[in-house]
Amino acid sequence: MDRTLIEKVTSMVLEELKVEQHSASVKPPASMRMVKIYNNLNTKPTFGEVTDTTRSDEEAIEEPTFYSTVASPKNKEKLLENQEKTPARIGIGRAGVRPKTNALLKFRLDHAAAVDAVYGKVTEDLLSRMKWFSVQTSTETQEEYIRRPDLGRKLNEDSKKLIESQCEKNPQVQIVISDGLSSEAIEQNAEDVYLSLSQSLNQLGFQTGTPFFVKNGRVAVMDEIGELLQPDVIILLIGERPGLISAESLSAYICYQPRKGTIEADRMVVSNIHRGGIPPAEAGAYLGNVIKKVLTFKASGVSLLQKEK
């Protein structure tokens, strides 16, 4: 419920940003909802960018196509035409009344990727490369994190001390990264989003605080961080609940002066950041402009809407 509300408010706010976006030649607001249409009959979706150009033997191995189709359709062209119109798993044929083996395995594979993203871990490699120190919420285990959203909104005592000792106080913008419900979202996107966002904030002349990583975080953990560091704005890059289309989608939640008691409607979110949605390297510039607006109006979400009127 909260999520829907936040998304709605954000899109209303961003509607106002249209002009700035075009001048900055980043994605229009509609792209927030844009979903990459994968043809699920293909081996792999065609991604926009391949950053790693090295080839190893492993890359030479071909992945299975999991091709599955209707045995003898009345109109083959129309079948393909329909399939191109939706990412839904249609035109896949049947074995009796059951799905064909390939369609079944493809489905199980996509679900497996989603589950592994939920129960996966962000690697030390990424954290040390990015020089993000790591803190933890009050949840001890992944199971507790899933069962107790309330504990995912609170930092444990050691973490609070660490943040107080390591971080610059009163920054204009505090960037926080958290695995949330998809470690894979962080592994795949956080570095690019962070770098492009830092660059954008730098160019806009905003001063940023010391970034860090929160293990097992929920969105509202930003309120407690806000109390500790007293920033003007927090932007939290957090893994979304994985779907079968993408298990690595990242959301960026933005809030002006988040503190204890901040209402959900004062948060904004830009979601669907991944290589099949808003490309991570492009997201930074866009998020920078959103933050600029928040800092100009000294408000976010519903409060920002009210101030604009």
Binding site: V35, A88, P99, R241, G243, L244
Partner: peptide, 22 residues
């Protein structure tokens, strides 16, 4: 029922067209 049980909008899984027939 959704195609192959995968709802590509709500990002969750339900029963499939095949399942109802089965």
């Amino acid at each position: 029922a959704t195609p192959m049980g995968d709802d590509c909008m709500l990002n969750y899984q339900s029963m499939s067209y095949h399942d109802v027939a089965t």
